[in-house]
Nucleic acid binder design. Structure first.
Length: 114
DNA sequence: CATCTGACGACCG
DNA sequence: GCGGTCGCCAGAT
């Protein structure tokens, strides 16, 4: 799995729409890998050509560290996306490319870490 | 080579 | 309903 596919996917997000990390992860067949996707964005070599601002949390909230948060919000609003109090209505602006559902996955509990 | 880490999300208690 | 924990991946230490 290469992050390039993630970037390519992000590039396909139409203007004025947004998607979530988890959504991207699912599209990449990585259920639960939302975090990995987020990391991919953080590790993005260059934001050039990549509409990273169209990627937000599943709840529609910007999950970006302050420096970029304001910029992201500004960019989104300039595209017509309403960021009310920080939350975006995913039902309205959420975007998903023609795709099928991913196979469900079980979860297991184990010793704490972190 | 072993661990930890991080722009997340879902589940368990 | 809330808080804490685990899974995912690649790169850094």
């Amino acid at each position: 799995m290469s992050w390039d596919s993630v970037y390519e996917l992000v590039k396909r997000i139409p203007r004025g729409r947004v998607t979530t990390y988890g959504n991207l992860a699912r599209l990449l067949r990585l259920p639960g890998g939302a975090r990995a996707v987020g990391y991919a964005m953080a590790a993005c070599p260059s934001t050039e050509g990549i509409p990273w601002h169209r990627v937000v949390g599943a709840d529609g909230w910007i999950r970006v560290p302050e420096p970029h948060a304001s910029l992201q919000r500004r960019l989104l609003e300039s595209e017509g996306v309403v960021v009310d109090g920080g939350a975006i209505e995913m039902k309205v602006f959420g975007w998903t490319p023609a795709k099928k559902g991913a196979p469900p996955r079980r979860k297991a509990k184990r010793a704490k870490r972190r």
